[in-house]
Simulated assay, not measured.
Amino acid sequence: MFKGSYVALVTPFKKDGTIDENKVRELVNYHIENGTSGISPCGTTGESPTLTYEEHKKMIKIVVEEAKGRIHILAGAGSNSTREAIEFTKFAKEVGADSVLSVCPYYNKPTQEGIYAHYEAISKEVDIPIVVYNVPGRSGVNILPETIAKLAELKNIKGVKEAGGSVDQVCEIIDLCGDKIDVLSGDDALTLPMLSVGAKGVVSVTANFMAKEVSDMIKYFENGEIKKAQELHKKLFRVHKTMFIETNPVPVKATMEMLGKISGDVRLPLVRLKDKNKEILTKVLKNVEII
């Protein structure tokens, strides 16, 4: 069900700190025009921790409205409160999202049993395809492959965004789950290695401004044009790494500001990219002829 390049969409802000709706709509059309498979608003890259509930819902609604069914919408609907995750998931379905991305509960560090119970509760409450998001660096806990395999038995758990940084873990998930669940890379730099062991795509930060390149790399791999996929991976690799020179989404927003796409403003406690890191970023982007 899930394959290709899904963009982890940034949330553009105006100078007064409010959501820039016009820029959101422009970004949706940019991705439709450049081969992106799906748009994922309100994830970590979308600064979901600092969006109000109303803003979170507004972002999903704007993206769905502007997409008009032309592209898959994988709406961020996670929370470390199961009750809130259910609320966001219900809303996403109500406004017409195609699926939801549901992050592992963060900060409260549930056990594997608690993680399973969290997703089971969401699955029972809302009939919509769910992609489990495993990101130990943010959540403080790793969803083990055995837990993913158990979740894959639930009728609407259809995918996992794996951002644990381990190709071994992806291999274990695929070995345990077979074709019951689609694996998407949650780490741009590991997308091609993960594809090589059976992953189907990526939820990408870099695709915010290199949508065609990220999408093409996956298409080349799918078509057996491995050398072309490798060449694009090589071009993209240093860009991917630079997107995490500071906390995501600070570097990607700085990049998009350089390209004239959006303001580089982020919400506290995040701050703008440091000057010394902006110099590094600029050099990398020049090397790949993005600027």
Rank of each mutant, 00 (worst) to 15 (best):
L9P: 09
V10D: 00
P12Y: 11
K15R: 15
K15W: 01
T18K: 15
T18H: 11
D20C: 13
E21K: 14
N22H: 09
V24N: 04
V24T: 07
R25L: 09
N29D: 15
N29G: 05
H31L: 12
I32E: 07
G38I: 10
G38T: 08
T45Q: 14
G46T: 08
S48M: 11
P49G: 01
T50K: 06
L51A: 02
E55G: 01
I62R: 05
I62H: 07
I62F: 07
I62T: 04
V64M: 10
G76P: 10
S79C: 10
T82L: 03
I86L: 03
E87W: 01
T89W: 04
T89S: 12
K93A: 00
G96T: 11
A97F: 14
S99F: 02
S99L: 06
V100Q: 02
V100R: 02
S102M: 11
C104T: 15
Y106N: 07
N108Y: 09
N108C: 14
G114R: 13
G114C: 01
E120M: 13
E120H: 12
V132N: 02
V132Q: 03
N134K: 09
L144S: 15
P145C: 10
E146I: 10
I148M: 05
I148Y: 00
A152S: 15
E153R: 13
K155M: 07
K158W: 03
K161P: 01
G165I: 00
Q169C: 09
V170K: 04
E172S: 12
E172D: 11
I173V: 15
D175W: 13
D175C: 08
L184E: 08
D187G: 10
D187S: 10
D187P: 03
A189H: 14
L190P: 11
L192A: 02
L192D: 01
V197K: 06
G198Q: 05
G201W: 05
G201F: 08
G201A: 09
V205K: 06
F209R: 01
M210K: 14
A211I: 04
K212H: 10
K212Y: 14
K212E: 13
E213W: 09
I218Q: 05
K219H: 11
F221P: 06
N223L: 12
G224T: 12
K227D: 02
K227M: 03
K227I: 00
K228L: 06
Q230N: 02
E231V: 11
K235L: 02
K235I: 00
K235D: 11
L236A: 09
V239Q: 06
F244Y: 08
I245F: 07
P249M: 08
P249C: 07
V250I: 15
V250C: 07
K253Q: 06
M258T: 11
G260P: 14
K261C: 02
K261T: 05
I262H: 12
I262G: 05
V266F: 09
R267P: 08
P269S: 10
N277D: 03
N277P: 02
E279Q: 14
T282C: 05
T282G: 00
V284C: 00
L285N: 04
K286G: 02
V288Q: 05
I290W: 00
